[in-house]
Design a protein around this nucleic acid. Structure first.
Lengths: 252, 252
DNA sequence: CGTTCTGTTGAGACGCATCAATACATGTGG
DNA sequence: CCACATGTATTGATGCGTCTCAACAGAACG
């Protein structure tokens, strides 16, 4: 690992004036919820590229939401390979299962420098004591995550490599648009082709070939860590089976 | 559909003396939770083989837990094919997303005659009012479901057809054992090979071939709707990457 | 007793993995 | 500063796993 794991207390915005919550993607909080969040959030942390936020097999007294940057939720497989379960973007929940269950079955790794908000639940009993409306928001998020993972299951099971890649970029573009981290035609993209391959279950070499195919078909291409969407309708068509109206389920 | 959709009020056990809760797989309820459940559960329904419990795109004021029988949570794909997201067994949660979200993105279909317990949440506001400990159990279930779906994503993405089938039967056998619906060497199995194929994303023809392979390797075979486990260690080996300690997260 | 579902097997085509090699970029230490 | 190692993108050749099409036997069902 090139950079050293670093966890710092950063001077950062707190819930009352959270810039994320101002986005249309997030539901607004009433005064009671805001007051609760101010006690609930215990820290704002900074993590450098490559560092691990959560390690498989550990139990945490806290969970978090990503505030800025990109992360990957992943599992190490028995044969040494790696599978990326989800690309985590600002606003996404991290480590809920490490609170609810005995031990997390997944790890989370920063793929850019990032910051996140840590919430202390002091064990399961603490989570039970969470304000009812907040608890409902957390449940909504878990269900949302479940739905995304179900879509992934479908795509992985029935889709071709081309369909998977097309669906992947459409999904990512939609999510980034909601966060104002993309414009209509392009977005910054810190993942390597190896990351993408490990996410979609396709060999790196083949990812590269499909990317060439999409480029030559005039759909999308990459230029220095930026994805450029050349023909979104065509990409949607290529991902035909796997597109949904991604219902926004806001939280925190 | 051969049999007519039928929803009956059945004479059935209620929460206080629920036989499912007596199983080791389920956590016990204290008196306060039991009292809550007695108000919460509104009906015990019977559904015949082939009937739909939930239709994609609908919103329900209720969710449910399966009480007896088997069901499949599935999605219809744009090209007419079908993908089975999960095999639902007694105790499993049904239709949580139809309560939390605007509309369910999945359907649920009975593959045997079955009964289920319906809980009325009178919309999202009702779910917020749910007793805190019950709400936490529901969240635990959602997270458990998420973890199973994540494992499925991994298996679908990186596993061969043989690994997927082996992992599928191991997972099923473990779950049925916890419910005392299987013994060490066999369990009743109402799914067709087409169901299995649509669940694992493998062609029916190929499922059949792999099944033959497993039979000839002395691992498992099927005789009139019963799976016979001939060599469980060998099956676990064949599914090597995809085995986890399936952490029991009890509810309701 | 036919009709429809399910299981079963064969032959051929195609997608993707694998192995191998090169070019380019990046960061590192001498 | 260059020399070097390391990570990433890219392309070719080859083989295996799985899909597809096709056919048939047995079971289930009305």
């Amino acid at each position: 690992m090139a950079k050293q794991d670093t966890v710092l207390r950063a001077h950062a915005p707190w819930c009352r004036n959270c810039p994320l919550r101002a986005l249309p993607a997030f539901a607004d909080f009433d005064e009671a919820e805001l007051r609760f969040m101010e006690r609930f959030k215990v820290e704002h942390r900074l993590v450098l590229t490559g560092a691990e936020l959560i390690l498989e097999g550990t139990k945490q007294p806290q969970f978090a939401t990503l505030f800025s940057g990109w992360a990957l939720r992943y599992r190490k497989l028995a044969d040494g390979r790696r599978h990326n379960l989800a690309v985590l973007l600002p606003g996404d929940l991290i480590g809920l299962d490490s609170v609810v269950c005995d031990a997390s079955q997944v790890s989370v790794q920063a793929v850019t420098d990032l910051t996140y908000c840590a919430f202390d639940v002091r064990g399961t009993a603490g989570l039970r004591a969470v304000e009812a409306r907040i608890a409902h928001r957390i449940l909504s998020r878990a269900v949302d995550d479940l739905r995304r993972q179900e879509r992934r299951s479908v795509t992985a099971a029935v889709g071709s490599a081309r369909e998977r890649l097309a669906a992947f970029f459409i999904d990512l573009h939609s999510r980034l648009l909601r966060l104002r981290l993309a414009d209509e035609a392009s977005f910054s993209f810190p993942l390597t082709q190896q990351h993408v391959a490990d996410h979609l279950g396709i060999n790196v070499v083949h990812v590269n070939r499909i990317m060439r195919g999409l480029r030559e078909a005039g759909m999308l291409h990459m230029e220095d860590h930026t994805i450029v969407i050349d023909d979104r309708p065509a990409i949607e068509l290529a991902a035909r089976i796997h597109i949904d109206t991604v219902a926004a389920v806001p939280l925190i």
